[in-house]
Design a protein around this nucleic acid. Sequence first.
DNA 1: AGGTTCAATGTTGCATACAAGATGTAAAAC
DNA 2: GTTTTACATCTTGTATGCAACATTGAACCT
Lengths: 232, 232
Amino acid sequence: MRDNAEKDAHKNPHLIEDRIIHAALSGRIAPGERLGEKELSEIFGVSRTLVREAMMRLQARGIVEVSARRGWFVIEPSVEEARHTIDARRALEVGMLVTLDRASPAMIRTLRDHVRAEQKAIACGDRAERSYLLGHFHVCLAETLGNPVLASLLQDLTTRTVLIAALYQSTHDAHESCGEHGGIIDALEQGNATEAARLMDVHLRHVEKALNYRSVSSRLEHLKEALKGSGG
Amino acid sequence: MRDNAEKDAHKNPHLIEDRIIHAALSGRIAPGERLGEKELSEIFGVSRTLVREAMMRLQARGIVEVSARRGWFVIEPSVEEARHTIDARRALEVGMLVTLDRASPAMIRTLRDHVRAEQKAIACGDRAERSYLLGHFHVCLAETLGNPVLASLLQDLTTRTVLIAALYQSTHDAHESCGEHGGIIDALEQGNATEAARLMDVHLRHVEKALNYRSVSSRLEHLKEALKGSGG
DNA sequence: AGGTTCAATGTTGCATACAAGATGTAAAAC
DNA sequence: GTTTTACATCTTGTATGCAACATTGAACCT
């Protein structure tokens, strides 16, 4: 991957967003992290205008939020927002599989390749790639089923989920996740969409269960939690 | 509703988007319609900058698109994109109901109120309000079930669906739609989420079936279609 | 008349300038 | 030593200016 984003940011207006999404999926950008306009404009070699436009789009996608005259920050979902996000994901992905007719052999092949890549990243100990691929599996699934609209929605929801997992110190095992992905593909291959949907439901419940809703790494939330316990 | 948007656009940065979404849901903005930056900036009494930022957000939400140095246009989904959008909606809404536990009496009441409003708008012959309410029912459903994330996703998807219906001259009867909404609530009231999901599936299939995928009102697409038939 | 060129106009693309407010720091007051 | 205040700095909020391109229409040539 090239490191000189400067030249490309002009030609591809979505480069900034793509990079930020990718970094979030890879766990290289943490929830609560500040994304200064000036900072980004220097990194990408463009003016603040383009950065700002990218941030507006990311805001609409629920990835960043702005605090007036303080800066842009990667979202730090509350426990409630986290639940809603994962619930929405579950609804979408279960619905996607339930309303599915049939998966072609070519689709199965693509998905198997993806899981193989996941396994490789896990074996190599490449944490960033591992995080990215485990999240991207769901986007890949939607893409493979041939619906770009679903894929786009899932990209945003999975990105938010990865941020939630980082914020609430998910203990979800990568191996287990990868295995569950394989199981879903198995069911799809056997033409059993209902079973695939059930497995997806279980998978996403595991994802949520692995969260530790008590340990919030955010400074502010952490403080709130701490003060709540000290008997005020 | 006040007509002087000038004062408020500064205080509420999302006003422009909200107005455009509402206008689209009401059928007052047609697919393919041009939304000039200057034009909007005069209407809302702000500079092009704010308009542009709103357009960026609407772009990320899939409501408008930009043609380089020509202008912003309300989306005109192709037949394929239309199918994907409605499929995504069906997946989301069916999944939402399938994964639902129980609907409280208060929720049922809210939804019944909404359907009553639909009936009133139909009776009054208020086409804009009717269009808005029939679309907004689905957003209302998600809100009522208590998930703002789902509600937000559905607002965008229903807006796109309304635009699709306008583009492909939907013949879906308002009365029928309204009746189907009532049926879904009945099932929810009886605690039968599975049946509610099934009815939602049927409802959205009706919505799609009512489209005339041949009659595209877009000038360009129309021409394309015409030339394809003349033996080239 | 039909087609071509070219200028005039209108629109977005992008950068920059300045305003307004938030934050952090050091001086001053007590 | 502590609190308060004022200031310096940093960040986003908004408007504006100019460049680059698309479109349109008229003049012009054939």
